[in-house]
């Protein structure tokens, strides 16, 4: 029973981190129409910053990295969030322009590739391909059993999820959120109404990046290590598939999608009998992710839980989408 308890607790932590990731991506994509195919870079910068800030100064022989300030883990989480925000500000400033959406998505994907190359190539930054290890666990001195600690950490992560969920839902219901949706749906009209579209897009990108950085910090403090293998460009697709399955543009759907895709679907093969050579299941999982991706794009682009249209309208019995007005414009 203890093994099961351990396993579920670990899954819960991963679930929480993925929910934060999905909230970040959903905020950027579902509400602002920005396709952040470089998402994993922002999670990763949060993880790296949290790691190097919590560790002591680099000895240079075991592993090399910058900073090394031995700060408390709470400050590390704050700095991770800030790192995500700062990096997304930098990236957003030069890549969030009025360009074709497929070019924009490709640019953010390429940035993810560039980041991997830079970190692997410049070793003194974050110890290159070997990555950083030995990150101490927060609250390690508390008198908790091993299992108790796992569950305590899971609760800690879920707390952040709840706060982030409340934050993004509140933001989406606010005038700012409505401005975002206007920008997503009809950018020219929104700009004509006086909304500063560039600033809006940048704001959303930065907030999403901050949440991504936070998720990275939480993840690295749990795992204790972080290397380029953990943040390949394809990891972003798992998150995107989650929000496709759950419903783009709505947060309950994002949570459902995260439950279905990384947790249920990707953990399922663990319980199936071993088929083929070792490692075959990993390939099949990625093929399945690609297949789900394409299926969602074909069948139901809006996902399983479609965005809730105007609740007030539905309550009063009116149609959710108003019919076309019958009157014609009088010629001048």
């Amino acid at each position: 029973m203890t093994a099961w308890s351990y396993y579920i607790a670990t899954l819960t932590v991963y679930f929480g981190v993925d929910v934060l990731a999905a909230l970040s991506v959903n905020l950027q994509f579902g509400f602002a129409g920005v396709v952040n195919f470089g998402f994993i870079v922002f999670q990763s910068v949060g993880a790296y910053i949290a790691a190097v800030v919590v560790l002591g100064p680099s000895s240079g022989t075991f592993q090399q990295y910058v900073f090394g300030a031995r700060l408390p883990f709470g400050v590390a989480l704050l700095l991770a969030t800030a790192a995500g925000a700062v990096l997304s500000l930098a990236v957003g400033l030069f890549s969030l322009r009025n360009i074709r959406s497929d070019y924009q998505a490709a640019i953010l994907l390429i940035i993810s590739l560039i980041a991997t190359q830079v970190v692997q190539g410049y070793v003194p930054l974050f110890n290159g391909s070997n990555g950083i290890t030995g990150v101490p666990r927060p609250f390690g001195s508390l008198p908790l059993s091993l299992q108790g600690y796992e569950w305590a950490y899971a609760g800690w992560v879920l707390l952040f999820c709840a706060v982030a969920y409340a934050l993004v839902t509140w933001l989406s219901r606010s005038p700012w959120g409505r401005a975002l949706r206007a920008m997503r749906d009809q950018e020219d009209a929104a700009a004509a109404l006086g909304l500063n579209v560039t600033a809006l897009r940048l704001q959303v990108f930065v907030i999403g990046g901050a949440i991504a950085g936070l998720s990275g910090g939480l993840l690295v403090e749990y795992i204790g290590a972080w290397s380029p293998d953990a943040w390949g460009y394809a990891e972003t697709f798992v998150i995107f598939t989650s929000i496709f399955v759950g419903g783009v543009g709505n947060y309950r759907g994002a949570v459902l999608g995260v439950l279905l895709v990384p947790i249920v679907f990707l953990e399922l093969p663990r319980f199936l009998p071993q088929v083929g050579y070792p490692g075959l299941m990993d390939s099949m999982e990625w093929i399945a992710i690609g297949a789900i991706w394409m299926l969602c794009l074909y069948v139901r682009p809006q996902g399983i839980l479609p965005e809730r249209r105007n609740r007030a309208r539905r309550a009063s019995g009116k149609a959710a989408i108003p019919a076309e007005p019958a009157e014609q414009m009088e010629p001048a």
């Binding site: 093929i287 991706w293 394409m294």
Partner: peptide
Amino acid sequence: LFEMMMVTLGLSLI
């Protein structure tokens, strides 16, 4: 344009 690029991405994964 954009959805097509997503389709090609999924295809490349598969």
